[in-house]
Structure formats: structure tokens, C-alpha cells
Design a protein around this nucleic acid. Structure first.
Lengths: 338, 338
DNA sequence: CGAATGTGCACAATCGGTTGTGCAACATCT
DNA sequence: AGATGTTGCACAACCGATTGTGCACATTCG
């Protein structure tokens, strides 16, 4: 092609020389402000065609520096390899692209220090908005953003210093619990204990889900024992160990389970396998959705969080001039399977 | 905090004023070149402490512009929501961070146009290196990078214009097939047909896997019929439809299957469920790994691609001054389960 | 005591765009 | 013909860092 080995990239100065005009004119033509600057259509076309044929592409760093707008939006995410979060990343990115923005996503392993570090990097790259997804410490991130004059939004977990978009965890859990109880009722079970397992007692979502779970049981005239609620963290291993411990005091499986994430589900299933049980020996509801799990076990009831709508709401808030930091938008999850 | 509502961010000029020194000195101190520039330790400390207490963070756009190095590396990825690719993204990002680089990942839905568009954006942001993962058209991306003088590396699928790091698909498939045949042998099956299903006939990996599959069968003295190899694309629906069609000519399930990805596996399992079959009615090997699937079906044999090592190799190539474009590094996958 | 060397820092150009402003050249009106 | 307005563009000052260079002052040496 045109490029020689030295591969110096073309600048507007090069184009100006080629088109026998000035850099400012080239700039105006290439960023679309040429009509406002009364550049003739003829010259504009000439510049455009030269830029095209030479394969010019603007240096975004220079543009960002001068405009004081980077065109970048950032997201911190606990992890990628889970269908919920990866779907969030994917939607975020494609919507950003649709808007001519560049999305950068960093995953921070549910570690507050990594969250802060990632936020610091993103702010250094002058992101225009930072979305903290499932952050353990969203308020610190919001505070960092505030100091830099950058908008921040919480997703999945609410925070007090920025608008939050979350699933309606309480109502989702309530519906999921009712679905479990419906299935249970159709089987004339020996008892109606449901083991709630997984998640973190400190985190908002888990607390809400426990509340929804308890509420649904109350609505059915059932009481709920503290001992049947085990927020043992999300990790598969933790769930497996917790179930192991729980079962030491029982001779039979509980008739149903409310598993607080697909990650925890992994641990549950491993324990069941080891004990020679099958998932279908129980009624199982899971708060989160995984298509492979759905394929394997059509009876598995899953609460699928509405990622598409959540991301739409995120961008909706981004478009709001100065959103209220206490804004809390709740999106209904869907109950799948069963 | 210090920041007022106008929230103008501090620059080295502000720090220079605060420290009663010059911007160039501030710059040298903050980027660690101050010893070389013979700045006194005393002044350096003063500047550092002011920067610290004022929460200064350098403007990366300005730095990138001047240094002609962005500190950004890019990756294009077919999709996030699959354990293999999400794991790739996660490893890529954390290794980048470890090296003080900023990783940006774009997912492009196995669509050549989106791949080009993402590459164009990344080049506009002056990435220092671009990794095309599983790209349908890696050579075009490499060509674009070449024109901009940017290094490119292919991952997962090989290309001709940049070094490639891929799984050893042939050998992996061969081992996976042997594992399937071993399990089959232990069950005195009625026939030793293995249905190979999923993937794209055009893509290198699928071709290699078919070759490894066939080779393993040959080594066992088995012939392989063309009719039992169905590269129907990866999508779950395609696999489901293809299996449906295949089974119209049969009365019984094949005794074993080689499924070419977890995504295809999803379609297979759905078809089995619909027909009242179970996964354990067959010996199933899957080229790719999913922990939830492994938990559900311990007998499922899976080839787990060695993502950690692949990413290490990617960065290894990145460190190589001028790597050979024809370099092809193959990483062994592991056989799990069974 | 003057020359040579070293120390500590500031100046100013530069990276590649963006944008406020100014000024010719030409057209229009009185 | 001169005043006024319009069209079409170029100039130059930024944005915030980096870095080659130069210069004042202090120290050491012959």
C-alpha cells in the first residue's frame, strides 16, 4: 500500500499539504464542522477523498486532549466468566459503540482494592462516565469520580453516591420462591423446607433476596428458620462446603433449594454428584440464568435478570443532565423454566 | 475534599505553581526520570507529596500524544459469554494490568465487518498491539495494523500475516477422541460410530479437529464416514437442527458424540431433552470446557484449552522485537472428566 | 585565582488535533 | 463609486504532558 516501512501515520498537516490547504480546514472538514465554518463543498470533497484514499484516521489522543472529552466510557465488573456479567459487558459495549463511544471494561474480582485501582486508571484515561457493576465498594468509586468531575452510575448493586440500576431482587426472589413452592405443591412433599444458599449476607442483593424469599413463604403461611438460610458467599467451593456442613445435621435432602447464583449452583451440583444425588431429586430455583444449565435441566427454575433493559437504563441515566444521586431504578427479572 | 464544584483537574502546571517550581520539573519527578535530570531529592519529595495530597493523576491523552505511545493494547473477541472467551479476556486484562498496560476488548460477534470496525477504532486510539482472537478474517486486521505500524497477533485462529497462538486442535481432538473410544470400549457398545458435530467447515480449528478425530479412529482401526461429520456452525440452534436432521435417518442414538464447542453442546442437549433422551445415554466428548457442565455431568469428557498458557505466549510474542509473521505456537489442551 | 567539571533546575519546542478570530476577495446595494 | 455584507479560508492559541538544551551557581583542580 501507500505506507512505507517507517509507517509514520498521516496527520491533518500531511493532508493539508496534499490538498494544498490549511490544517484547520482539514480538521473542520474531517470532523464535520465545515459547513459552519463555510468551507466550500468542493474543497471539502477534495479533502475527504484524499483522506479516504490515504487511509487517514484521526489521533484520538490529540482529539481528546483538545476537546477535553475522551469519548471513552468505563465499566468495572467483578468477573467476566459468568453469563450474567459477560452479558452485561457485551450489551454495554455494543450500546456504547452504537453511540460512537468507546467502552473499556475492567474486571476486578470482587476486590475493593482492585476496584479502586481500575477506577483510578479509567479516570486517568479521562473516561466520561464510569459504571460500577456489582462493586463491593461503589461509594468510594463514586467519590473518586466526583473529585474528577466524572459521572458515575451503579449497576447490579446500589450505592448511595450515584444513581443505581439494579434488579428488583426482592420481587424476583419472591416470584422465584413462589415458583418453587408451586412446583413443590404439585409433588406432595414430605416437608416444605427450602434451603436458601449462596451470596453474601453483607450485600444488598442477597439481603433483598432473603427478604423476598421469606416474604413469599409468609404469604403461603410458612415460617422460615434462620438455619435454612446460608449466605456462604458466591464461590462454588464455599457453597459446596456449606451444603456439606448443612447436611451433617440431616438425613434427607431438603425438598427444595433457592440457590443464589449459578456460581453457587456449581458447588451445590458438585456436592450432589459426590453424594450420589441428582439435581432432580429436589426442586431447585436459581437466582441467575445460564443457558447450558437450562438445557441440561429444564426443570431448574431460574430468575433471569433483564440485562438488556438494565443497560438501556444505564444509558438513559447517562443521558440525564444531572441525575439525582439517590435515584434507584429497579428492573424486573424474569422467571424461566420449571 | 479539595475539589470545588468546577472540578477542573490538576495539571502539572498547577502542581508547579503549588511547589514553586517548573512544569518540566514536576513532569520529570512524576514520571520517574528525575534522577536522570538531576532534580534534588528534596524537591522531588516536595512535589511528590503535593501531588499525593492533591490527588493528581496524569492525563493519559496528553502523555500518549507526546510520547507517541498510548499504553493501550487491544483485543477483538467473537463474544464474551462463553467460558473460553471470557477467560481469555480476563487473563488478557490481568496480564496487561500487571505490565502497566491498559487492555481494551471489543467483541465482534464473529462478523468480519464488526471486526474491521473494532480494529479501526482501536487503531484510532493508537493501541500498541492488537490481538485478534478467533477472528473470521485475521489477515485483514493484520494488514490494517501493518499500515499503521502496529503489531498484531492472532489468537485461537491462525492467520498468515501475523504470529499465531492457537490450541493444538488436532492433537487435542485426537486425545479427546481416544478418551471417547476408551469409554466406549468399556461399555461393549453396539457400534462405534461417533458423531462429530458443530463448528465451521471453513475454519481452521474445525478442520484440524476433524483431522485429529479421524486420525484417532484410524489408529484404532476404525473407518469414518463423511455422513458422521457435521460442521453445522457453532450456534446452539444450528446444532439442534442438524442433530434433528441426522436422527431422521436413524432409529437409535449414536453411541458417542464429539461436540465441537459448549455452545453446540447446548443445542445437542436441548434436542436430547426434547426426545426424552439423556446426555448419559451416550458417551459425549466436548471440545471446550464449562465448569457448570462439568458439575452437572462428571462423565462428560471435555477438552479444556489452556488459556493461561496461551495468554502467556501472546505476551511472550509481544515482547519479541520483530516476530516472524509465520510463527505458529500450538498449546496443548487438557482432557478433563470422563 | 582562573579553568574545568558537576549540580539543579527552567525554557521552549513538540505531539496532533480543535476552535476563536481575522482578513482578503467578491457580490450587492445605494 | 463607496459602503456594506457575504463567502472562503488561514492563523495562532490552546489542551497537558515530555524532553533536548542551556544556563546559573557551586565545587574541585591545577
Amino acid at each position: 500500500m501507500v505506507s512505507d516501512s517507517s509507517a509514520k501515520r498521516l496527520t491533518i498537516y500531511d493532508l493539508a499539504r496534499l490538498a494544498e490547504t490549511s490544517p484547520s480546514t482539514v480538521s473542520a472538514v474531517l470532523n464535520g464542522t465545515w459547513q459552519r465554518r463555510r468551507i466550500s463543498k468542493k474543497l471539502a470533497n477534495k479533502i475527504l477523498s484524499i483522506a479516504q484514499s490515504e487511509g487517514y484516521s484521526a489521533n484520538m489522543q490529540a482529539r481528546a486532549l483538545r476537546r477535553e472529552r475522551s469519548g471513552i466510557i468505563g465499566m468495572v465488573l467483578p468477573l467476566y466468566d459468568n453469563r450474567y456479567f459477560s452479558s452485561i459487558a457485551q450489551h454495554f459495549e455494543s450500546e456504547a459503540r452504537r453511540r460512537g463511544l468507546f467502552a473499556i471494561v475492567a474486571c476486578t474480582n470482587r476486590d475493593p482494592a482492585q476496584e479502586r485501582e481500575a477506577a483510578r486508571m479509567m479516570l486517568a484515561y479521562r473516561v466520561e462516565c464510569l459504571v460500577s457493576t456489582g462493586a463491593t465498594d461503589p461509594d468510594t468509586i463514586s467519590a473518586m469520580c466526583d473529585e474528577s468531575g466524572v459521572a458515575s452510575i451503579n449497576l447490579d448493586l446500589p450505592g448511595g453516591k450515584a444513581p443505581s440500576i439494579i434488579s428488583n431482587n426482592r420481587e424476583g426472589a419472591q416470584k422465584l420462591t413462589h415458583a418453587i413452592l408451586d412446583q413443590l405443591a404439585s409433588q406432595a412433599p414430605s416437608d416444605d423446607t427450602i434451603l436458601f444458599i449462596g451470596g453474601r449476607a453483607e450485600d444488598h442483593n442477597t439481603r433483598e433476596r432473603i427478604a423476598g424469599f421469606t416474604q413469599a413463604r409468609t404469604e403461603r403461611g410458612l415460617t422460615t428458620s434462620e438455619a435454612d438460610i446460608i449466605p456462604c458467599d458466591y464461590a462454588a467451593d464455599k457453597a459446596q462446603v456449606a451444603l456439606e456442613a448443612y447436611m451433617r445435621h440431616r438425613t434427607t435432602l431438603p425438598s427444595a433449594m433457592f440457590v443464589n447464583s449459578t456460581i453457587s449452583l456449581e458447588g451445590i451440583v458438585r456436592w450432589l454428584q459426590q453424594g450420589g444425588y441428582q439435581l432432580d431429586d429436589m426442586i431447585v430455583g436459581c437466582f441467575d440464568w445460564d443457558p447450558l444449565a437450562a438445557a441440561f435441566h429444564p426443570h431448574l427454575i431460574m430468575a433471569r435478570q433483564n440485562v438488556g433493559e438494565m443497560i438501556d437504563r444505564v444509558f438513559g441515566v447517562m443521558d440525564t443532565p444531572s441525575p439525582d444521586a439517590s435515584l434507584l431504578i429497579e428492573v424486573q427479572p424474569d422467571i424461566m423454566g420449571g
